[in-house]
Structure formats: structure tokens, C-alpha cells
Amino acid sequence: MSLKYVTPVAMFKKYLPKDYVELVDFGPFGKTQDEAGPGNMGQFKELMEEHPMCSGCWMAYYIRLIFASLPCPEETVTLGTAGCGRLAISQAAVPFIYGNYGDQNAMASGLSRAFRLRFPDKHKDVITIAGDGGTMDIGFSMTMHSWIRGERFTTIMLDNEVYGNTGGQESGMSPKGAVLKMAPGGKQFDKMPATALAKAAGCVYIVKMSPTNIKKAAKIIRRAIFVAREVGPTFIHAYTSCNIEYSIPTEEVFADARAQEKDRFQFEEYMTDAAKEVIDRIEAEEKAAHRAKKGVVAEEVN
């Protein structure tokens, strides 16, 4: 897609569904993060629309945050696989590709290469958003190989530490001792070291986090996307609890995310020198643009 593709012809506007027209007029297409970003969610029409995920789902919240943080939503394609996450990702106004279980990173490899050939003059962002099963269990080989090949796209793992969509079976990312279906006596093995694996496989920007601080979480998503445009594979490992299978009361989901931030999901950030260069450059540009805009506003006021 592109901005031109999204915008309807003025004459046809009255015949289009109301939701679509609202999305074009009040959505984040073609706007900056200050106008329609995570900081003012609830004040613009968001890309994600009514999704069928459970009440109080922290994964749904994080997906909402991902879509609000996209630097260029009209030039983005998301890929996903079976799991809870795709229920919400597929409801967003961003093209979504759904493959067989676990092959999202293989598809993304081809897609990002094709985009670079077809649109050499602009950045098309490819993001794979999948659960812990899709990324680290069943899709493990395809995820690892895409990283080893150095494919330039972003991988986001929504880690709910369980197979939530199929009824709560133990996954490779479940913590040791967790009592789940297929693990009635508690899981016997350790949680997979996803970030260490990513580092060994050659990811250039890796973050492990629990999304509680909205500004920080958004900044990391944007950093991962910017680095993937130029340098190499990037990986975000985010804690998105399953309140059903881990029996967390819905109103305590946020408190649980904060508790995990101090426990299993302590903040980790790794970047190579090349990635740091890109991040520094882009963040300096953003800051300059923000300052320039502030200056214009101040002049207008005076």
C-alpha cells in the first residue's frame, strides 16, 4: 500500500463505509508520532479495530501499541501465524499475511527481498508478529535461519509463555515449574533463552521487555523497525501475559506485567555498533524536527 492508495477520491467518499472514511480522516496515515502516536492513543482513530481477544488481554494491548508506534503504517506489511495474536493483527488496517504455522519469518524473508527489488527508492517495513509457539517452538528453524541469513526485517515475539489459543499447553518459553496442560506436575525444563539465541544467530538489535512504560515500549518498536530498514535482523521479546491460562484476574494484568518486569522480564537491550549509529542518527533527526516544529509554534504564538 501507499498513502495514495489509502486516500479515497473525494467524489467516492460518501459511498465508502463510515469506518474507512474515519480511518482516512482521523487515522494515523501520513501523520507524525506527535499527531497520532502512542502518546495520544484514544484521541485518533486507531488502526486496530474491534478484535475478538479475551477481556483484559495484555497481548491485545501490546498489539495496539505496535500499531500506534509504526513509523509509516501505509508502507508496512505485517506477517503472522496461528495463535492468539493473529486474531487482533488481522483486524488492523495494515496488510496482513498469514501462512502455515511457524513460517512467518520464511515468508518475511522473501517479501522483504521482493520489496527491496520492486521499491528501491523507499522503505517498506516488514514486521513479523507471532507468539512464542510460532517463533521459538514450531517456527524455530525458520526464525533462526532468517536471522543467520541476516534478513532485514523486524521479528516481534509476543511471549505469553503458553499455547493460549489451543487451551494452555506447555511451550518452550513456559517458565520451569509452571503447572499447565501437558505439564501437570510442573514444567521440567528451563525457559528457552530467546535473546541469547538471537544474539548468537546474528540479530543486530535485541530487546527483552515487559511493556509497561508506553513511551519506552514505543521507542523500542520504532528503533527495531529503523534498524531493520538498513542494518539487519532485529528482535523484540515482549511479555504479554495470558490471563486465562495463568489465572490472572483481568484488573491485575497490568500489575502482573509490572511484577514480571522485575522478575523474568528484566529489561535487556543489545545493539551492534552499526545499529547504534542508525539509532543515534534517526533519533537526532527526530529531535531536530520536533524542535523546529516547536519553534514554528512559538513564532506563531508571538
Binding site: M41, G42, Q43, M48, E49, G56, W58, F67, I214
Partner: peptide, 17 residues
Amino acid sequence: NTCTLYCPEANTLMFDK
């Protein structure tokens, strides 16, 4: 507008400027 930032549903808890 803190509550609007932490709702898991999009376009549900809105802020009236």
C-alpha cells in the same frame, strides 16, 4: 489521559479534548 493509554481495546476508551 492515562487510562486511554492502557486499555487493551482500540477505539474504546477515548479522550475528549
